[in-house]
Write a protein that binds this DNA or RNA. Sequence first.
DNA 1: CGCTGATATCTTCTGCCGTAAAGAGATCCG
DNA 2: CGGATCTCTTTACGGCAGAAGATATCAGCG
Lengths: 269, 269
Amino acid sequence: MVVFAGQGDARRSMALLWRTEEPGESRPGPKPGLSVDLIVDAAIAVADAEGMAALSMRKVGERLGRTGMALYTYVPSKGELVDLMYDKALGELPTAHDLAGGWRPAVTAWAGHLWHFYQRHPWVLQVSQARPVLGPNEFALLESLVAILRETGLRPPALRGVVSLLFDFVRGAARTVAESRQAPSATGVSDEEWWHTRSRLLEEVAPGFAARFPMVAWIESEAGVPGEGEPYLEHQVNEAFTVGLTVLLDGVQAAVGRTGPPAGPVTAP
Amino acid sequence: MVVFAGQGDARRSMALLWRTEEPGESRPGPKPGLSVDLIVDAAIAVADAEGMAALSMRKVGERLGRTGMALYTYVPSKGELVDLMYDKALGELPTAHDLAGGWRPAVTAWAGHLWHFYQRHPWVLQVSQARPVLGPNEFALLESLVAILRETGLRPPALRGVVSLLFDFVRGAARTVAESRQAPSATGVSDEEWWHTRSRLLEEVAPGFAARFPMVAWIESEAGVPGEGEPYLEHQVNEAFTVGLTVLLDGVQAAVGRTGPPAGPVTAP
DNA sequence: CGCTGATATCTTCTGCCGTAAAGAGATCCG
DNA sequence: CGGATCTCTTTACGGCAGAAGATATCAGCG
């Protein structure tokens, strides 16, 4: 499920994201037993442990000793809660990177941090990217990347493409690992078991596979060997991540060389 | 929601995907009023029209003049149905590409086809990639890409990285557009309206934005102008797609140059 | 032809979900 | 103390996937 925030009162959503509600000194009625932060933390804990699909208002409420409906006092809807979870989780990421070695190692570090972040919080990958959440930490993440990439000397139109490419790549690679991690608990079948069963069935159901798909058979040859206890798929994806990032950065380097280093005009292809 | 296939009888799933069930001539009982193909087509129609989130067994059954439960006669669960939809839809893609101009234009064409395919069937992007569906058309798509990339002379380990990078990039870019297309109907707010409201609120709630996030402000400058009637976000993503693909292919070119240019098309030391 | 048993289809039911509506009870100001 | 206001619960609605079981439909046999 791709999760959209509700369209109800946009102002309130933004105020929640940027924490700009007034303290509200001494009002009538009972003291709030919960807070937005408490709720968001509980929701993140649920999503980390059981995945986005298992996240429900009732379950978050239960974790806080309340009913699901109690949350609606603090948060307009589930969609807004997800936005808050998203932006809060992003706060874990570092906001500055060492540029002493130039942009390339800095981008590599940035990508590595994001990669590991997605492993810790796979549910983040399910939040829609089409309509950005526009929270402070989402901007901080973008800010940190652009601060690095500005060193390349590329102009904004080209850089926007590079930024998208980087995000799409890291997210895509992370998604594959993340889903393979949640798949065992979601389906009750371990990775090894699943692959073993499926490859046996494939031979059974598609005889002459190697003849019908020679390129597929070829590219799956010369496979690297996973380390001790490392799941097969995860190993493949880790290797693919390293290789892919190298290729990507080589492409950026080429663009830099084409437009001239830290000073130069923009040329369209 | 990321959709996993049910773990129930894997053999039956594979048989359905590869269409290897025996015809079963003249059995007692009423003639089947439906077929797997009919159901899959109806389900694709629903998903194309209303998105994956709106796809339910009841709705598909309704479209065929049956209840939702009637489908379980033909298909083990919703997960398997989604796998069948996925592989059937992929059958639309071409399986061979012209290599006369070398690998670069061929990859560009391949990526363009996939990109447009995802625009036609955005729901495909919601099918989990961690555990491949292993249907014939999924393999055919991979086969067609590897057939092109083999021309580069790169070896399988490096090529696997390039393949992942390409898939992740095209999927990520397509996802952004696809979600922005479905967002208006899902939330009832048009893109223009949404952006206008949000950017006004952003200034209100985060004064001094440009000072706090100078790099973000900078990279959003020099924006290209959308064509007549082209949504703003969509225009940005289209530009990013072109730039990103160029950068990516430059990176491949660099890798090719590093391992030695492909004098002979097929084999390298 | 009519019966029997296999099979397809439909109905009912369970237990989830998000959230609207209404109200119980706590807490403060005047 | 009285009324206003707030938190939180209860109840209810319509939706979902799917289990269990009832019913309708047909082939082949006598």
